[in-house]
Design a protein around this nucleic acid. Structure first.
Lengths: 376, 376
DNA sequence: CTGAAAGCGCTTACAG
DNA sequence: CTGAAAGCGCTTACAG
């Protein structure tokens, strides 16, 4: 009973035939190996549960699959199992702007670790809800099982319709509070950099704030004030300037450092690194050296900025990678995902940033010109 | 003949039933509308070809689909049609780094315009070929029909196995020359900025080069030399410094500007904006003002850098968005995609960047101190 | 004009 | 241990 398929010769012919035509299917493998598709499926998926396939058969099937270069069609499998192993990453513009792109990269890494693929769609800034819902609909038609909704910067969003209940909002909070969300712990980060300034001896610290007051602004300000309060310092409204969160926004510092010595701040807390970059410039223009004459701290640890300023900027790193990774873990129900993370406040998880000490902080000159630089 | 399904009442019950259970399928719609799945499929896909469905039937089916909230299962459709409308965007690290991220964003936009979804996988820098091929295999199992292989910066890559012949290499060229590729026209860009310097009157122009000599380096250097030659200027090897392509790399400029006035360059062409940033710093340290004492140009128009330098940097914008868009068009065989683009050299298409004039170029001081600033 | 049927490539009860 | 059969949700010749 030399039934074709098992013989080397027939097999190699089969190999040749398939190579020149379509990609081999499970059925091809089964036929070539002389088993049913059931058996072929069971061994190729390594399903141990209950089913025992003799080693000989198992090896024959595996070998045949390899010889034929068989690769399963995930579409067909997904249709049958109702599970695509695919995640939709939709965002306002994390793809467009080099800002929070670490979230996407980390999410992609973590997804790959779990054998998942990421569909990414970038809505663009201020996409109308209808457009967002259309994108979500398209993803849904592709049967994506899980959704992450990412934002470029920490803000509040109206959740588009069509997103499943277990969607994770990344770097934003969904109005209504019905969705889980992961955001940076801006308050804690601000507290830490502010404390850094205070511990260096600063008493009059300016705050260069984002005039549009996004959630992160309030939180960073809270952390700033908490640090002041904890060290018995008063918050001085006159030193709290609202400005535009770009480099040119930092130039408003000029006004403050033009003040008489007793009123002038000795340090500046900037809402973000770009404002800090402007603050450096304002200081230089006024002939003040950083940090000798003026200490400056930022927020974000923005790539190509914070570390490249002269002197390098003390700031707080936003935990974008950690956030992206956690988002995937949550969405996939990874056990223990929440173990290393502070307890959520309701539906929002706040991930701590990290104080990055560089060279933009020094102790202040004495207010009255005494003890200028003679200690050590 | 009051056959159930057509009546409002029965339909609304059907609606209710489905709402509380699974998502409705084409079969559900067909049954509720009292037609076969064939008909339902034909009208919902708006297939005019040959098939004429009476308007009454057509509308009934459409209305039923809407009432039930029917959304096709693309997986099932794709399995049948052998076409997923899905593109694999695999890259070394365009997702990890904020550098060429515009390529991805533009690709995603263009894909959306065509009704395609993007799978993005980020391999990470220097991923071993085996890992790359595994990712490609996974994408292939998901039946993605088209591939784009993107790189963070213009370079040569060994094409991983498994990529289809019509893969488009984006911001890189595949060794072997068998694949289409889209890269910036570095030579032309360099020619333009260099000419800008020469036209301002500069004769001794330093070149701060990337010491690792990526393809872009050679091309930019070629463009630089071509501009010199065209204006009858000699290339002076002593002014050609190889350095590391980061901010600190620009500091080597110190050596050059310490030279006696007759040997000192009056302008600097930097391989990229980060080197230019370092060059600014070196100039400042030596007490030279940009552009009054020294003109500087960069390359890349890197976000948050070029426009934010003081003074803002004249540079060339890399056409990342155009490249990303074109990649999608090529891969989808969009007719006319190549119309607005220079003829390919073999398999490589070079897209021109754009000279961005800002404030870092001025005419040089006279070599011998004469005619300092007294014209005009 | 419309429907019954086959089939895309899998997985998974269910029988034997 | 192994296979025949059903079915995931579609589209598309093919008949009528």
């Amino acid at each position: 009973m030399s039934c074709g398929p098992r013989e080397g010769h027939a097999l190699s012919q089969e190999v040749k035939r398939l190579a020149t035509t379509r990609r081999p299917t499970l059925k091809d493998v089964a036929q070539a190996a002389g088993v049913s598709t059931t058996t072929a499926s069971v061994v190729l998926n390594d399903r141990r549960d209950g089913v025992r396939v003799p080693d000989a058969t198992r090896h024959r099937v595996q070998q045949t699959a390899e010889d034929l270069g068989y690769r399963p069609n995930i579409l067909a499998r997904s249709l049958r199992t109702q599970e695509t192993r695919t995640i939709g990453f939709v965002s306002d513009e994390v793809t467009t702007t080099p800002f929070a792109v670490g979230m996407l990269a980390a999410a992609q890494d973590e997804a790959a670790r779990h054998g998942y693929l990421l569909f990414v769609v970038n809505l663009g800034p201020n996409a109308p809800l209808a457009l967002q819902e259309q994108a979500i609909d398209q993803l849904t038609q592709h049967q994506v099982g899980h959704f992450i909704y990412g934002c470029m910067y920490h803000r509040l969003v109206d959740p588009p319709l069509g997103l499943p209940a277990d969607t994770v909002f990344l770097n934003c909070e969904a109005n209504g509070g019905r969705h889980r969300s992961i955001v940076p712990d801006d308050r804690q980060g601000a507290y830490e950099v502010a404390a850094e300034l205070i511990k260096a001896g600063h008493r009059r610290i300016a705050f260069l704030d984002d005039h549009r007051h996004p959630p992160a602004s309030r939180l960073r300000f809270d952390g700033f004030r908490a640090a002041l309060a904890e060290h018995g310092l008063d918050y001085e409204p006159a030193l709290h300037l609202k400005t535009t969160p770009f480099v040119r926004g930092g130039l408003v510092l000029s006004d403050l450092i033009g003040l008489p010595a007793e009123q002038r701040p000795t340090a500046v807390f900037c809402y973000n690194d770009r404002i800090a970059m402007g603050a450096y410039r304002a200081a230089r223009t006024r002939g003040l050296r950083v940090p000798d004459d003026l200490s400056i701290v930022g927020f974000d640890d923005q790539e190509f900025i914070a570390s490249e300023l002269d002197p390098p900027l003390t700031t707080v790193r936003l935990p974008h990678r950690e956030m992206g990774q956690l988002a995937i873990q949550l969405v996939l129900d990874e056990p223990g995902a929440l173990d290393d993370v502070p307890a959520p406040e309701g539906n929002v998880i706040r991930i701590a940033g990290e104080l990055v000490r560089r060279d933009s902080v020094a102790k202040p000159h004495s207010d009255l010109g005494q003890s200028d630089a003679s200690s050590s």
